[in-house]
């Protein structure tokens, strides 16, 4: 589904990603772990198409298409979703209105009929239950005055509504209490399908107790220094990122 080859990314002249290669197949859940500042969000934003990040080398293919050539909204309509680490507030724009515009942009793209306000409400109610969202939030402006937890749940709710092919979750677990964490995880788990893939970015191993990944990657200083199965997450938790980084350096030195 997604092939990233030798991706190099600069932000304001600083090298952040330094040759990242990763393949994600349909049906898989990959977890990307790493210390703060290692470039996790950078990867997420680049995949979503933010133009403040400059790709200097490498390529990314999504379902065979050159993802880097698509505009951010085209990527979204092609099925790429990003649950933001810091969802932005849009005052004055109602959440229901916003989401309906998003859904209809997608439907139009697929040649389907657009939903009116009534049909849309029907459609989202079920999705709200999935993440235990208060219906009142639909009436409020997008993310405005939402608590940290509400914002994160809101992102998962939007994901459930938009039903993407490939979803990136950027530290959706940060700042959530254990109950909220479970709700978010349940939401993601219920969406796991053979034709859908996830990239779950997290700083802590905790979330991975609830969303069990097929693969875990460790990102340090813009490079994947270690990849493995779900047990790698446990090992990291015990030994820390320095271990992962060093073990690869030792391996490199030994060879």
């Amino acid at each position: 589904m997604l092939q990233i080859r030798n991706l190099h990314v600069n932000v304001q002249g600083h090298k952040i990603l330094k040759g990242l290669t990763l393949t994600i197949n349909a049906g898989e859940v990959h977890s990307m772990m790493g210390p703060n500042g290692s470039g996790k969000s950078t990867l997420a934003q680049v995949l979503a198409g933010r133009d403040t990040y400059e790709v200097t080398e490498g390529e990314v293919f999504f379902e065979g298409r050159n993802l880097l050539e698509l505009e951010p909204d085209e990527r979204a309509r092609a099925g790429v979703f990003l649950a933001f680490q810091y969802p932005v507030e849009i005052p004055g724009v109602g959440t229901a209105y916003f989401l309906r515009a998003a859904v209809n942009a997608l439907r139009k793209h697929r040649g389907e009929e657009e939903l009116d306000a009534v049909d849309f409400l029907e459609f989202v109610k079920e999705k709200m239950r999935l993440v235990d969202m208060d219906e009142q939030l639909l009436k409020r402006s997008v993310n405005e005055g939402f608590s940290g937890g509400e914002k994160k749940r809101g992102e998962i709710f939007q994901m459930a509504v938009l039903e993407p092919k490939f979803a990136i979750l950027d530290e959706t677990d940060s700042g959530l209490d254990i109950d909220a964490l479970k709700i978010v995880a349940d939401g993601v788990n219920s969406m796991r399908r053979t034709d859908r893939a996830f990239l779950v970015i997290t700083h802590y191993q905790r979330l991975l107790n609830y969303i069990v990944p097929d693969f875990v990657h460790v990102l340090v200083d813009g490079r994947i220094v270690k990849s493995g199965g779900k047990e790698l997450a446990m090992e990291l938790e015990e030994r820390g990122y320095a271990w992962a980084d060093q073990s690869i350096r030792h391996a490199a030195a030994a060879s």
Partner: peptide, 8 residues
């Protein structure tokens, strides 16, 4: 960008 990311 947030709107774009939702396909708008």
């Amino acid at each position: 960008f947030y709107c774009n990311q939702r396909g708008i």
